[in-house]
Each structure stands twice: as structure tokens, then as C-alpha cells.
Write a protein that binds this DNA or RNA. Structure first.
Length: 389
DNA sequence: ATGTCC
């Protein structure tokens, strides 16, 4: 604790990178909070509800607000054994619509394998959710150093799945128990201990959720998948004897981190470096928002033809997002240029780039299918109830 | 972000 001074903010971006003033203000506010020891800020920095998104914060207390509701949210990348030449995008888009329904697989065994209660929030497992979450089919474009990429089991032309999702309403339920604890939690208190345990479970649940989404997608596309990397960016971890909060900052003490672009921009695959302790073992997690959700009304998708445009990409790819509000809120122009973010990270010496990932099919939400599946679910629940009587 | 405010 150092009430007399604020924590140092290490900024891993240059003047060439546009950062919203509100986000800088939030960094200063967090730096002055009790027990905050050090902060790392990345080029995807933008304002969040409780604190700056795109930052890692080391503290000797637990601040649930810095993480928010989507505990364990992150990006998982999977390699697919489907040959790109066999892919028919429009057919693949139809096949992926099944992701909209609930997962009917054997959840108990999968939860138990991660030391989670066998029925822990099982009803939501394998679902993408809303907001900026997605399941994206991509094609790998190796950069100059293709040998480095091959050591991770990928090569130019391979198909991959990038899954961005989290702990769904499980994380929301955990966060709801500490909604008003703005002063943070003493890790030695009962409340701190309970939150910590629940939070750690939500992290494992969220990781499993991403795996199940990818497995469902691979099954729909009739191919096999291999995990390439799983990088959470919304969680707390014990690091250097303190609590490291990552809010929209990827865990970077793993070999590979995906840097997600917007759905009409390339994503990048980064090889991490570990010689900059001030970066708090973290990296940017994506392009970062330029405009908040509300201010996107009027900036995109005003007309039907504009909305139709938003359903395809400049790369010739498809976007399945049949929720009009979501389509507009998540329009590509709501985001900064991920290329700029990549360059800033490489210039700061935090990572090197081994591949670009070109979006082919971004699945977010299928409205019609969702409704019919919701009806089926309701029917099934009614039948279940009747059969139990 | 969220079985979301109907």
C-alpha cells in the first residue's frame, strides 16, 4: 500500500497511436487506487465501464470491478484439418447456424475433467454469447518467418478457428456478488477468498466454453481440430506475489497470442517475448474500440443496403450476424486498425508476428435459427416437466 | 458483457 503516491503507468504505445482521453483518465484513477503497484497499458486501450480496457494492473488487493462480469473471457485458436479448397463459404455459414442452439453434449465429464462441479452452469456451455464475441473461420497467411509458424503446427493456407467468448452468465453471477465492492477485496478475507475461488472456476469454465464452441463448429464443418493456443484476457492471476488484473490484455507468458482484428480486418498471431517485466506478462488483445456501442447508431448500417454490406467483408468473407443492433455496434469502423496495434507491440519489443489470419466466415448470431431452436428448447422443457409428473 | 427492458 502506498497512499502517498500513485503507481507507475508503463505505456506500450507511441504518439502515433490514438488513445481516447477518457481511457488515459481511467489509467490515472486506477494508478491512485489503494494497493495498486504497477500498470501496463497497451495500444488497444479504450475506456471501460469501471476501468481502462487494454491494461494489466498489479495490486496487493483483488478488484473485481477491474475485471467486470465476463470473467475468463479470451481468445482460443484452433487449427482445422479441412482443406481450404473444399470450403464452400455459403454452405459453411449455414452449417455453423447450429451454434445458435444450446449444446446437447455430455457436459458432466468435461466439467469434472477441469475439477468443476459436474452441473456447473452446464446449460450455457458451448454458446458464443453477444457483444464482441464470435467464432471465426480464418485462413492462415504465414509471414516471412514461416518456419517459426510451423513449429506451432500451422502453415500458410491452413484453415483455423478463432473463438472469442467467455464465462457467459456464470461470470455475471459471480460478479453480481461483489457489484458494490469498489474499494476492492482483501484477499485474506472470507469474501475475497470466496470471490477468488469462484473467479478461478469461471476462468476454467470460460476456457472449456471456447473449446466446446470450436468442437461444435468443427463437427458442423465435418473436420478435426487441434488447439493452437488459448489466451485469456479478462482475469486475475497471482503473479510476482501480487494480484495481476488483466482487463482486455492477453496473458502473454504463453508462447502464442492471437491479436483479433475487427471482422473486416486481419487478425495476427504473435510470438511473445518475455524480457520486459514492466509489461506484466501481458499484451494487447485486439484492435480496441474507437467508438462505444451507443455512438455507433448513425455511424453504420443506417440503410438496408448498408446493413447488407456489413454482412460481407472486403476480403470476400461472410458475416453471420442477424441481430441488427449487434451488427451495427460491432461494425468494423467501431474499431481501431489492428495493423497499427500490431506495429506498436512489435516496436515496443513485446512480440513478433508469425502470421496474419484472414477472416472467411465470422459467426456471431443467427436470429431465425435462434428462434426456432428456442421454441424447440421450450417444448422440450415442457415435455420434460410433464414426464416427471 | 448479460436467458438483457417488453
Amino acid at each position: 500500500m502506498r497512499p502517498d503516491r500513485t503507481a507507475f503507468i508503463h505505456r506500450f504505445y507511441s504518439d502515433r497511436c490514438w488513445i481516447e482521453g477518457t481511457a488515459e483518465d481511467q489509467l490515472e484513477q486506477v494508478a491512485a487506487m489503494r494497493g495498486v503497484l504497477s500498470i501496463a497499458a497497451f495500444p488497444d486501450l479504450h475506456p471501460g465501464k469501471y476501468g481502462p480496457v487494454g491494461s494489466a494492473i498489479l495490486a496487493d488487493r483483488i478488484y473485481p470491478q477491474l475485471i467486470g462480469n465476463d470473467i475468463g473471457c479470451g481468445m482460443s485458436l484452433f487449427a482445422l484439418d479441412l482443406p481450404a479448397r473444399k470450403l464452400r463459404l455459403d454452405k459453411a455459414a449455414q452449417k455453423l447456424r447450429m451454434l445458435e442452439g444450446s449444446w446437447q453434449g455430455a457436459s458432466a465429464a468435461r466439467l469434472k475433467a477441469l475439477d468443476l462441479r459436474e452441473n456447473l452452469h452446464a446449460q450455457a456451455l458451448g454458446t458464443i454469447g453477444g457483444g464482441n464475441h464470435f467464432c471465426e473461420l480464418q485462413v492462415v497467411d504465414a509471414n516471412a518467418d514461416s518456419t517459426a509458424l510451423e513449429t506451432f503446427g500451422l502453415k500458410k493456407g491452413d484453415l483455423a478457428l478463432l473463438v472469442h467468448s467467455g464465462s457467459r452468465s456464470l461470470g455475471t453471477a459471480v460478479f453480481s456478488t461483489v457489484l458494490d465492492r469498489f474499494a476492492g477485496l482483501d484477499p485474506d478475507s472470507t469474501e475475497g477468498h470466496v470471490y477468488w475461488q469462484d473467479h478461478c472456476q469461471a476462468i476454467r469454465w470460460a476456457s472449456l466454453n471456447r473449446t466446446l464452441i470450436a468442437e461444435r463448429a468443427a463437427e458442423a464443418l465435418r473436420c478435426e481440430l487441434t488447439l493452437v493456443t488459448d489466451a485469456p484476457h479478462n482475469m486475475i492471476e497471482i503473479w510476482d506475489g501480487a494480484f495481476l488484473h488483466r482487463k482486455g490484455a492477453a496473458k502473454a507468458d504463453i508462447p502464442l497470442v492471437p491479436l483479433a482484428g475487427s471482422r473486416d480486418a486481419l487478425s495476427y498471431l504473435l510470438v511473445t517475448k518475455s524480457d520486459k517485466p514492466d509489461a506484466l506478462a501481458s499484451l494487447a488483445h485486439g484492435a480496441g474500440r474507437k467508438y462505444d456501442r451507443r455512438s455507433m447508431i448513425g455511424r453504420a448500417g443506417a440503410t438496408r443496403s448498408e446493413r447488407n454490406e456489413l454482412a460481407r467483408t472486403s476480403f470476400g468473407g461472410l458475416v453471420v450476424c442477424e441481430d441488427r443492433q449487434l451488427l451495427i455496434e460491432e461494425a468494423p469502423n467501431a474499431y481501431k486498425d489492428p495493423k497499427r496495434v500490431l506495429e506498436e507491440l512489435v516496436n515496443a519489443g513485446l512480440a513478433t508476428n508469425v502470421a496474419s489470419l484472414k477472416p472467411l466466415l465470422t459467426f456471431k448470431k443467427a436470429a431465425r435459427q435462434a428462434q426456432s431452436i428456442a421454441r424447440q428448447d421450450k417444448k422440450r422443457r415442457l415435455l420434460d416437466r410433464r414426464s416427471r409428473r
